[in-house]
């Protein structure tokens, strides 16, 4: 464990707390993409299947349960919560996720770390899917133009988590002799690159004060 990975995990937890605060606490799903939330639920339910046999680290075990629980809770409230359904904009949340899920599934089968292991295929699929899971959310924000304050912090924390993981992989590559993780490194680069535009507008709007809403052109 290094500081980059620890901060990345904390940023990830923060993004969940912000989203849960908005959806469950604030009873509002305005500006939030259900499609992104559902893809994240798929990402965690597929990647963390090894909860059934990998007890290597209690820290990882607990956070895996937390991430699966939080992502399923968010999907549940967005689908069945009366006030959340009322504030969720299904028409605008229209990104064709089948064009994200299908290629990631094919890539997961073709490019993974052990072609004899179904878990490795599923694991690689979840890494690829996570890299593009934010697209429906960014697409929705782009359509709406203005990003509500809490939503902007949620998206920022979610983007920052994988950016910190990039630093973690760089650090491990430099400090651990034969550490090599091409799949997560490339996927993490793509994932973080997708946030660059948002990061820019987030910074522009927040440098005048944390409570300003983020405007996307």
């Amino acid at each position: 464990m290094n500081i980059f990975r620890f901060l990345g995990d904390m940023s990830h937890i923060l993004s969940f707390l912000l989203l849960l605060h908005k959806i469950v606490g604030g009873k509002s799903a305005a500006g939030i993409s259900l499609r992104t939330a559902e893809m994240y639920a798929i990402v965690f339910c597929t990647r963390y299947i090894d909860l059934l046999w990998n007890f290597a680290s209690l820290y990882n075990y607990l956070l895996k349960l937390l991430f699966i629980g939080a992502s399923l809770t968010i999907v549940y409230f967005m689908r069945y919560g009366p006030s959340q359904k009322a504030t969720y904009n299904a028409d605008e949340d229209a990104f064709p996720v089948q064009y994200l899920i299908a290629p990631c599934a094919v890539l997961g089968v073709l490019i993974n770390q052990d072609h004899s292991s179904p878990f490795e295929m599923v694991w690689a699929f979840s890494i690829y899917l996570e890299a593009v899971a934010i697209l429906p959310q960014l697409f929705l924000l782009q359509k709406q133009g203005e990003v509500e304050n809490l939503t902007s912090h949620y998206v920022f924390a979610l983007g920052a988590y994988r950016a910190l993981y990039l630093l973690n992989w760089m650090f491990r590559f430099m400090t651990e002799p034969d550490y090599q993780q091409r799949i997560v490194w490339l996927s993490g680069l793509v994932q973080t690159a997708l946030y660059c535009d948002f990061f820019y507008h987030y910074y522009q709007s927040k440098k005048g004060g944390l409570n300003k809403s983020v405007k996307l052109p």
């Binding site: 990998n54 990882n60 895996k64 770390q113």
Partner: peptide, 10 residues
């Protein structure tokens, strides 16, 4: 790369 048990990250 790091198949199997050495997946020590989230």
């Amino acid at each position: 790369d790091c198949p199997g048990a050495c997946k020590d990250e989230l």
